[in-house]
Design a protein around this nucleic acid. Sequence first.
RNA 1: GGAGCGGUAGUUAAGUUGGUUAUAACGCCGGCCUGUCACGCCGGAGGCCGCGGGUUCAAGUCCCGUCCGCUCCGCCA
Length: 599
Amino acid sequence: MSAFLSTHTRSHSAGALRAADAGKTVVLTGWVKTYRDHGQAIFVDLRDREGITQLVFDPSFSKEAHEAAGVLRNEWCVGIVGEVRSRGGNVNQKIATGEVEVWVKTLEVFSKSDTPPFAIEDDVDTNDTLRLKYRYLDLRRPKLQKNLIMRSQITRTTRAYLGGAGFLEIETPFMVKYTPGGARNFLVPSRLNPGNFYALAESPQIFKQLLMVAGYERYFQIVRCFRDEDLRNERQPEFTQIDIEMSFVTEEILQTTMEGLMQTLWREVLGVELTLPLRRMTFAEAMDKYGVDKPDLRCDLILCDVSAPSGKSGFKIFENVVNGGGIVKCLRVPAASAEKLSRSTLDGLTDFAKSFGVKGVAFARVQEGGAWQAPFAKSFSDEARNEVNRIAQAVPGDTLIFVAEKPKVANTCLGAIRLNIGDKLGLIRKNEWQFMWLTDPPLFEVDDDTKEIAAAHHPFTSPRVEDEHLLDSAPEKVLARAYDLVLNGVEVGGGSIRIHQPGLQARAFKALRISDEDQRAKFGFLLDAFKFGPPPHGGIAFGLDRLAMLMTQAEFMRDVIAFPKTQKGSDLMTECPTPVSKKQLDELFVQVKADLPVK
RNA sequence: GGAGCGGUAGUUAAGUUGGUUAUAACGCCGGCCUGUCACGCCGGAGGCCGCGGGUUCAAGUCCCGUCCGCUCCGCCA
């Protein structure tokens, strides 16, 4: 232990001192952010996680401290004893402690630092590889410290709110039984059971339902989940959910409780007052108007379906798509904004669209009288054109953007174009918090190619009562008692009311063509449990990382996770994953294919 | 599985139709400086141009392969 610390205790953080503290003797600790040596006085900016304080080393005040300060360099870790003095009129407006400075009497160097590979300040554009390799230095940057501090406030507030609402925090296993379907699992070999594997839990889904069966009524957990899928900015192989399940509730009760959580978080963490209830929108409306199941309502541009007129317009390309089971969707860009759409922006959209597997995008400028200025205008019948104008509510000066494709592709692509040009034209209101509940999604999804049916969420999601009769005859038309919470175009949470009646569950399995045998093998323990008086129940899970990203306004998920992984799932700081030794593998009864490395 | 972008001093970037000694800023090192706060001034050091092959009299630059990172589609709730 340092002799300094045995005789001194830190009195203030580096962000705490104000004019009223002038005259006090203080003890500060932190890191040297910068030093400015004027020969006589030496100025040092001392940084800790709370802020920055200017230190003054003046030989007339302490010759000893001034001499010691001469060798200080960036990122040395130091402690000081000094006297707070007002800076009078010479205030530094840029920092919270700018009214004062601390004249140092005693300097203790806890440790020196090599020159860091990049500057420890915000907005320094350093490549990600380096930032991740020296993560502990990147984490010293004020912005990341601010993000992680806010993330801590989010989890603390969540625990307080849910605790107050009667929820119990209960842990569930990470090492679980492998279940096929859904996300790919990470596997863990069992040394004690040669040839057998655990899976790392994709989510605590089944366990939280069992806790409802067990009578715990209200459960939550801030829990790590693991999915071995390809990664994205907003997707890490391990991520954190705020996982919740409630018994004896309807959608309304559950959603209201969750809205209260959001309101509390925004109030206590951001100081923003949300208006409740939050908006509801059906899945069907979202797909129709926005092309996605997570509309960004900060942008007012909307899509419309013009398949009907396009299918008999005389324009072969559109007609063929419609006759082949595809759709034609149209995005109207109002005249005032359309003027700002340059030729090159529109050309760029074609390339953008191609990345979605779309062959092309068509543009038409609406002229006086409703005629179109477009390469295909003369192929398009007047009648069909007028009908498209009517559906799109187009007026002269507007630009119409068309995508004709299979439904899923057309929606995905034009929905993305909507946000792409919305951003370019400044039509996304960046200062808004646009929440909405997405409701009534389909219970099942039909694969475009194989025509196979699969659970859209998981096989325990309830169908809507009014749709139950369609389960056997037309399962693809059944809508679910499921809901997603969407914020600014990001799905921040999703859940459902679960099936708790064995008869209904059997029909759902039948619709999914899951045999009795498979049911037993995959979910036998849950089906058994449901024989013993399961309560009606439902739940939701929020993506904590995504919530934190939005609340901190971080551009990258990496910026709200202390130790994130790269797009290939590696940790550049610890250099993992790595091959392991033959001995370790033997112990686990695991063999690596001969052409891959073993240590 | 697929598409795109990137990799040049410690860092961020520039580097022309291939051409002589690969530039700049910041950082770093030394010196000077009584008030700076992106301190200033003078001087200095610093390069496997991601890696491997090819074309060429000549490659940072062109071609092929490969590795790493990022963004997106597929995948994933």
